[in-house]
Write a protein that binds this DNA or RNA. Structure first.
Lengths: 330, 330
DNA sequence: ACCTGTTGTGGGAGCGCTCCCAAACTGCTT
DNA sequence: AAGCAGTTTGGGAGCGCTCCCACAACAGGT
């Protein structure tokens, strides 16, 4: 049986309260007493019972990470792994536990309500990728502190994101500068908000340059497969360059291009999005927009902890600047 | 303020105990009473407080997943993402929460002790990849139910794993059958148990065939970079085929081979290990050993739940058969 | 000598549940 | 009419902590 606070108190000859103060880095404890108690704690390897603490204090020292992409196909995308890594690393550093919820989007509200009512977690980082995801409304209505990651819908909401519209602009401007005019896109899954944003940036720049061609739009799904089929559709239309809305689709696009006996970038130039680890390993190495998923995960946690410390803080959007990583595909 | 059991009891005109019974699918409740209470619960959207439940029942409905690979470099490997996915999916299906710990191996015992003393989790799935990881001893000494994933060190321990030795044999035998004789290996990180096992299987088969050549062993690290440098070392020794101890290194090896102006499999054949999603997308598509990480994650959770249901069950090792996926690289 | 403030400590109450045992009610037998 | 088994319900105790208030001890100022 694990020891309790009371046990430690008895052993070290003080009261429950004093031990509690020591454990919680309490303020008003005689240094000698503190030392004595700490020694006992060390010696007996006492660990406070988290459940009791939660119940009594209404605080769990646990954060949640909610990824509605589900355990489904979308999880192939290294994007989510990197986000998880970042969030987990930050939690671990801050001595918070991390509860992970990979849900289907439909089950999400249920999960959320459970989390909130429960003080299972003190706050939650939510990956926001689905356009019109009702989760945002749900979160606002609830009173569980949260930070969105991936998209910042509204300045009144805490979020960490890349400016996807601007990022797409950067990519397309670069292609224009390199002299490409017939520029196509393999779009992301249409219900994904990043996909919509990237398409918007893409369209905008090309229209301004007067070279927008709607026949060079191909639907995609953010997966390798969609990149492949998107590019197959695009190739007969002879694009000089193609912007893939994420790297995974760029991989598929490469496959289609190379199967057609064409070469990158001589016949078709490519720009991707995300800069997943694989991107640098492709042939030729992929020029892409870097999205610092790992860092975003960390930032989201830091922000969340700030909010927990001082709940009255005004909301803040942390928008990271897009960065173009030029390699050899464009 | 969220409602409590007591509130529901008052509203529906019964006692705390009765509501508790209803909530927990209790046995002895009058069907009409049950209906009435359920209706109130639904109407007021009552959610039991998990912390209180944990404290009172000593059960948390939460499983832990411990990955000592850390938030470090090793996490580049999709292996871990897939395991996480599998575990998360199974937990979600069984209505268990999942607490994720990506720790440095050194911090791991501390985490573990915290988990155990705490009833933070009912049980834990532990990724076992580091040879001589003291965690196994630690787990045995403790009384937190656990299942290892990735390697099964001992029939007395619950584990889900692939037989890595046999898997390597399968790969090498295949290469021999195809007529290759100068067969090299890019080994995994030397402190990883899978790396050792795979090397063993590799060596064994070649020695039996009388074609083992110790100059065709190259050190690796399970990362892309190590695959690249390993292959650079190997190439001057003119191997006809190379077995990479995981797919990520095969990617690096491809890069080295192609940079050298050689072709796969004509000049050098390649076999990988894991069958990560990327494997099928390489040029040429990689022949590899499939390791069903996602399934393994699920199986580990199922097994853990079995143990929780009946703690006196004899331990069981679930060993999955290796499967060679023949594509075009060998 | 008194009061005042400061520092350190102790213990009661309570967080929201589960578990257990006892009480109340039912329907049936003798 | 009393007795009994079986079913259904109620309430006390307690899980291990935190929070709050009370109190003890001692300093310094009047």
């Amino acid at each position: 049986m694990p020891l309790t606070l009371e046990d430690i108190a008895r052993i070290s000859g003080v009261s429950r309260s004093t031990v509690s103060r020591v454990v919680n880095g309490g303020d008003k404890v005689n240094p000698q007493t503190r030392e004595r108690v700490l020694e006992v704690i060390r010696q007996w390897n006492y660990q406070p019972n988290a459940a009791a603490r939660r119940l009594a204090a209404g605080r769990s020292d646990t954060l949640g990470l909610l990824i509605p992409a589900g355990a489904g196909a979308a999880f192939e995308d290294p994007y989510f792994s990197q986000v998880i890594r970042g969030v987990a690393a930050a939690c671990s550093r801050r001595d918070y536990a991390l509860t992970l919820w990979l849900t289907d989007p439909e089950r999400e509200p249920r999960v959320l309500r459970r989390l909130a009512a429960n003080n299972l977690v003190d706050g939650v980082v939510v990956s926001y990728t689905l356009a019109d995801d009702p989760i945002v409304g749900e979160l606002r209505r609830g009173n569980l502190p949260f930070v969105l990651i991936g998209h910042a819908p509204d300045p009144a909401i805490n979020a960490v994101a890349l400016d996807n519209v601007e990022a797409a602009r950067v990519a397309v401007r670069y292609l224009l500068e390199r002299g490409y005019r017939r520029i196509g896109i393999i779009m992301g899954a249409p219900n994904q908000i990043d996909a919509q944003d990237r398409l918007r940036g893409f369209t905008e720049v090309l229209e301004q340059a007067g070279v927008f061609d709607p026949t060079l739009l191909a639907e995609g799904d953010f997966l390798e497969e969609g990149g492949y089929s998107g590019m197959r559709l695009l190739l007969p239309r002879r694009p000089e360059a193609v912007f893939a809305a994420n790297d995974l689709m760029a991989v598929g696009a490469y496959r289609a291009i190379q199967e057609a006996g064409l070469s990158i970038p001589a016949d078709v130039a490519m720009v991707g999005f995300d800069d997943v680890p694989m991107a640098a390993q492709l042939h030729p190495p992929l020029t892409t927009i870097r999205q610092p998923m790992y860092t975003m995960g960390q930032l989201a946690v830091e922000r969340l902890l700030e909010i927990l410390r001082d709940p009255r803080q005004p909301p803040r959007q942390i928008l990271l600047p897009p960065e173009l990583v030029v390699r050899q595909s464009a």
